[in-house]
Each structure stands twice: as structure tokens, then as C-alpha cells.
Amino acid sequence: MRPRIRALLTAAAALGLTLAVPTVDAHSAGGFYVPPANPDAYRQIAGLLRQGDLADASKIAAMVRTPQAVWYGDQTPAEVRRAVAATTRDAARKGTLPVLALYNVPGRDCANYSAGGAADTAEYTAWIDAVAAGIGSRPALVILEPDSLALTPADCGQDDAQQTLTAARFAEVDYAVGKLEPLAATRVYLDTGHPNWHSVNSIVPRLIRGGVERATGFYTNTSNYQTDDAGAWYGTLISSCVAYAAAGGDPAACPNQWWPRADAQGWIDANVHADPADMAHFVTDSSRNGQGPWTPPAGKYTNAEDWCNPPDRGLGARPTADTGSALHDAKLWIKIPGESDGRCLRGTAGPEDPERGMVDPAAGQWFPEQALELVRFASPPIG
């Protein structure tokens, strides 16, 4: 188990709580919190049982009993404070570590499938203050604002020439780091998108502006399908580049994920001398990457949206803090498997998803057809 994850569990001992520190491997994730499932998941299980489909019902049940993140966004400060407090108290009683995904930054998701978030910076900082109050001194692992740094207002074409909203985005993320990381038993990780998106050279300056040097680190592959190997290598390169930049180097000189690995490792060996304990650590999302990314049919779509409810994907490795890497703190299920990415149109007029021949559920709603795919194609198998 990674020392920083163990520290979250053991920190509560000083507060008079009794927290277990179980061994966590790829098939047993007793150290992480299991939240209540989407109610529609239970309805799907009940329906499968009525149909006599015991195998799939067992697999869906196993999926929702696997530790995964609890997402917060759009609540009022009073609501989010109560909700976060309830989750962290429940996790502490059970001797488990909750993963909290905070998703309320202004301009969230470029006003697309997961649009929403706080109205402005003042509203957002008040919301973060409430989250901090809800956590208090209890252990928590915070996934801070998916897509906040990989998808800024400037990337969306929604900013002015001075990039006022993008500057505010970095300030908002940095404020959250400054508010949450100093809590007694909280560790904060920042957004990098996924390994097939931004280069290391592009994302590291964004991480620095977002306050990564004051956070525990960063996360990658949230809600995406890139392989564990790609995510771990991307994370290693980013961590090395952050350390190089902290020592005065230019991130533009760092190797990126498209370099030959031997060349990139040689560069790291020659240029990065920091102790791994002092470097930015990372976690990865393995919730839906068991089959890796989807390759759309060539020439079929003007915008295939390969990230949006791709067909025949499978659950990935179970949450674990045993990654074999001094920098890779954990594999987690950050995206809730079985919940839709949105109403995917793939460049068509819709309303159906042309890859599936149906109207996909709205983002965050339960998607029974996809849930069945995830458990049937899970790697390693589930259930």
C-alpha cells in the first residue's frame, strides 16, 4: 500500500477513530469506501433476477459493491457540507477511505453533456469552503474537478482575448488546493485529462498554475478508457516533468508520452534527481478500461466521440493501492461504471446514438445496456 494512502487511513487514529489498514490488491479493495449505488442499478439487478438471469445480476451486484468515488456538484454550500460530512463519517466508521470527486467549477464541461457548476468564482470558493468544513479532520482522497485543467474556457472557445475566464479557472483550482490539502487527513489530486489528449509538455504548465506543487499530485484517465500501462507511464512522465520544472527546468524540454520509452527513461535518469517521496504522485481511473480505448469505424463519423459511451468496453482493474510504483498511489474507480457519459451523437443530428441505435441516457444517468457490457467484458472478470 502506498505510504500516502496509508497515511490517510492511519491519520484518523490520532483522532480516536479505529481504522483498519487492510491489504488491497487488484481483486480486493477493502481499504476504499463503497458508497450506496445508483438506485437504478438495484432496479436493473431486480429485473435481471426476475428474468432468471442470475449470472448478470451477480455481476452487476459485484460491480456496485466495488469501491468507487462519490461525486459532488451543483449542491448549495449547505447541502454539500452535510453530504460530504455524512460520507466521510460513514467511511470512517467502516474503516475505509472515501474518494470524493468534486465537480462544480464554473464553466464545467464547456456547457456540453455535463454542463453546470458554480456561477462564478465567489460562488465556487464558498462551495469549496463548505466541502472543507464537511471533511473536517476525517480522511478523504479528493479528485479535484475533472476536466478543469485539460479543458479550460480557452480550449472551449469561450474566453476573451485576455483569457480572463481561463485565468480564473487556474485561480479556482489553486484556491481549492490551498483550502483542502492542508486539512488533517486529506490528499488532493489535480486533473490531467488522459494519455491520448494533452502532451506532457502541455499539461505540466497547467498543473503548475493550478497548484500541483502544493497538492499531493494529479490523476489521469478519469471517465476515459486508456489502458493501465498508458496511464501509469503518462503519470510517471508528468511527475518527472513537474520535478524538473520545480528545479528550474523548462517543461517544453521534457519527454512526452509519444517519445520512445527508452529515450524518455534515459532523459529522466539524466535530468530528474528528486526523491520520489518528494515528487507529485498520481492516481489513475481503471473503472472502464478493461478493454482499452474504442477504435471507431474508419470514416464513419465526422466526430466519433470515442470517449462517449463507446460500445463493448469492460470494467478494469479493481481499486488498489498496490501499484508497484513509488509514484502511482492507486488505481481507483473514479467514474461510476454504469452511468452514462451523455447523449452521444457522434457528429450526427441525432437524437439517437448512431453507434448504438438508441438515445443514450443523459450524463450521470444509469445506462443498463452499457452496465451489462461493462460486466460482461470486464478484465479481470467480475462476479
Rank of each mutant, 00 (worst) to 15 (best):
R50A: 12
R89G: 00
G324A: 01
T125M: 02
A140N: 10
V80R: 00
G217S: 07
G314I: 01
G136W: 11
A185M: 09
G266V: 09
S199C: 02
V188Y: 08
P22Q: 07
P205R: 01
R206V: 05
T164R: 11
A101C: 15
I238C: 06
S148F: 02
T152M: 14
V21Q: 06
P255H: 11
A55K: 08
R43G: 10
W127H: 02
T222C: 11
G350E: 08
L190K: 02
E339R: 03
V272K: 10
P368E: 03
R81A: 15
P361S: 13
A371G: 00
A14C: 08
Q158A: 14
A363T: 06
P182D: 06
C110W: 14
P311G: 12
L144E: 14
V80M: 06
D40E: 12
V142G: 06
S287L: 14
P351I: 11
E145F: 08
Y189I: 01
S137I: 10
E145N: 05
P251E: 09
L141I: 02
G316I: 12
N303G: 02
I5L: 10
S58Y: 09
S202C: 01
R343T: 09
P260M: 05
P139W: 04
A91G: 10
G52F: 01
H194L: 06
S114P: 00
M358N: 07
I60A: 01
C156K: 06
A270L: 12
T302W: 10
T320M: 05
S340F: 10
E79D: 05
G342H: 08
Q291K: 15
D90S: 14
Q75G: 03
G324H: 04
L97R: 03
D160T: 08
R43N: 06
S223Y: 01
R169K: 04
L183D: 05
V21G: 00
F218Q: 13
P146A: 07
P22A: 15
S148Q: 04
Q291T: 13
A321C: 02
H328A: 03
A78T: 02
T216D: 04
E369V: 14
A12F: 03
A349R: 12
I203D: 05
A252I: 09
P195F: 15
P35R: 01
R4E: 13
A245E: 07
K94T: 03
S202N: 10
Q291E: 15
A363G: 02
L144D: 06
N196S: 12
E352C: 01
A115K: 12
N309W: 07
T18Y: 05
N224D: 04
D56Y: 00
A330V: 04
L149F: 04
V173T: 13
A232C: 05
G30E: 11
P77G: 00
Y301N: 00
R206Y: 14
Q51A: 12
I334S: 04
M279D: 14
R81D: 08
G316C: 13
S239P: 15
L144F: 11
G357T: 10
A304T: 09
L102P: 02
D109N: 14
L374I: 04
N224H: 07
I128C: 01
T284D: 10
A176L: 08
H281A: 07
L8C: 11
A264G: 11
Q68N: 13
V272P: 05
R81V: 10
N289E: 03
P22S: 14
G292M: 11
V173H: 00
A298P: 05
